[in-house]
Design a protein around this nucleic acid. Structure first.
Lengths: 217, 217
DNA sequence: GTCTATAAGGGGATAGAC
DNA sequence: GTCTATCCCCTTATAGAC
C-alpha cells in the first residue's frame, strides 16, 4: 500500500468494489460519508437534505453530486459501507472459553458500540423502523444466515448444559434491543436520567446482571 | 351519548380541551387522526405528506387543512392524544399482590401493546429517535416523574426482599426496549424469523423467563 | 364545509462557465 | 473538479367559488 506510483496525479487504484479512485476522490468521499452519517442518522432519509450534507461536508451541493449521482445513492452506499462493521460483534461470538462469558462479552461489545457509534445505530434504526426499504434483501439473507448460525451455537451450549435453556433467536433480539436502546432512544434516556448523567456504566452493570441471572446454570 | 340534541345541526358540545365540536367535526377529526397515525408512523414526520394523509382519510387536502391548521398541528395533536394511553400500562404498575407478578403483568401488557398497536409504538419511536423535538418537555417532566415514582415502588420491593436487587430505572428501560423492539423493528424480526411467523407467543415466553430468572428471590 | 385552482417555497438535480 | 445559476417537481398552505 505504499506510494510507489509515478507522480502522475491521475494515478488510479483499483478498489474492492471495482471503482477506480484517486487519493483526492477518496478524501472527498470520506468527507461525504461522514457528513451523510451525521445528517441521515439525525433526520432520517426524507428529513435529511443535500444542503445539510453539503454544508457538513464542506462543499457545494453540485460538488456533492459530482461524487454521488443522487441522494439515494449516498444513503445506499453509506448503509453498505457500515453494515459489515455493524455485525462484527455478533460474528465475534465464537465457541471458545466459557459460553456465558462469550455472551456477556458480546453484550458489552454491543453496548460499547451504542456508546461509541450512536449515529450508526440510529442510521440503521431509522431504516428498519420505516420497513427497511433499502435493506430488505440484506436482512433476509446475510443477517438471517448469521443469526441462524449463532442460534445454533447457542443451542449447542444449552444442550451441553453450559447455559440455561432459552430461545436463542429471542436471546439475540434481546441483546440488540437492550443495547441499541441507549443509542436510539438517547433523548428519552437522558430526559429521564438527566442530561448530564452518563448511563453506560450503570447500563453495563444492569445488563451483565440480567444475562448472568438468566443464563447461569 | 344518544342523539337527544335538537335538529339544529350546529349544536355544540364542550370538549375536555375546550374546543367545541359538532358530531361531524368529531368524525372528521377521528378520520384524520387514524390516517395520520398510519402515515406518520410508517414514514416519519418529514416522510409523510398531506396528500397521503388526505387520501387515507378520504378527503381533500384543503379539507384536511380546514380541520387542522398545519401538518405540524396534526402531528402534535396526534402525539398528545396518544401519549397518555401509551403510559397507562406503566401507571397500572401498582403495589398490590405479588411484586414479581406485577412486573410480569406489566411486561405482558406492554408486549401486547406492541402487538396490537405497532403504529403507535413506531410513531413514538420515530419521534424519540430524532431527538424528540416535539416531546422534549413531556419526557423531562411527566414521563420522568412517572418513572421516578415507579422506580421508588420497585426500590421498596427490593428493600422488602420481594424481588432481587437491580437498578429500577434500567429495569423500566429494559421492559420498554424489549417489548417495543417487536413493533419498532418488526421488519428485522420478520426478516430473521420468516414473514409468516408470529413472534409474539415466543416473545412472551422468553420475556417471562428472562424477568422471572432475573428478579425471583 | 368542501371543492378547484394556485401561490409560495423547499429541495433534488442539471447546465455550463471556469 | 468546482462553482453559480437555474430548472422543475413536490409539498405545504391559501384563495375563492360553490
Amino acid at each position: 500500500m505504499s506510494c510507489n506510483e509515478t507522480s502522475n496525479n491521475v494515478s488510479m487504484r483499483q478498489e474492492a468494489n471495482g471503482k477506480a479512485q484517486t487519493r483526492i476522490q477518496k478524501e472527498k468521499t470520506a468527507q461525504i460519508y461522514a457528513a451523510a452519517l451525521s445528517v441521515f442518522s439525525a433526520q432520517g432519509f426524507r428529513g435529511a437534505t443535500l444542503d445539510q450534507i453539503a454544508l457538513e461536508a464542506g462543499m457545494s451541493k453540485p460538488n456533492l453530486l459530482y461524487y454521488f449521482e443522487s441522494k439515494e445513492a449516498i444513503h445506499t452506499a453509506l448503509l453498505e459501507k457500515l453494515v459489515e462493521t455493524w455485525l462484527d460483534p455478533l460474528r465475534a461470538l465464537q465457541d471458545n472459553g466459557e459460553p456465558l462469558d462469550n455472551i456477556l462479552d458480546y453484550v458489552k461489545r454491543k453496548l460499547a458500540m451504542s456508546r461509541d457509534y450512536p449515529r450508526e445505530s440510529r442510521l440503521f434504526a431509522n431504516e428498519i423502523l420505516q420497513g427497511a426499504p433499502r435493506m430488505h434483501h440484506f436482512l433476509g439473507s446475510e443477517l438471517k444466515q448469521l443469526v441462524d448460525e449463532k442460534a445454533l451455537l447457542i443451542q449447542r451450549w444449552i444442550a451441553a448444559g453450559k447455559i440455561r435453556d432459552v430461545d436463542p433467536v429471542h436471546l439475540i433480539f434481546s441483546i440488540w434491543s437492550l443495547t441499541q436502546h441507549y443509542a436510539d432512544f438517547d433523548a428519552q434516556v437522558h430526559a429521564v436520567l438527566g442530561a448530564d448523567k452518563d448511563p453506560y456504566a450503570d447500563a453495563e452493570a444492569y445488563l451483565v446482571t440480567l444475562f448472568s441471572r438468566m443464563l447461569q446454570v
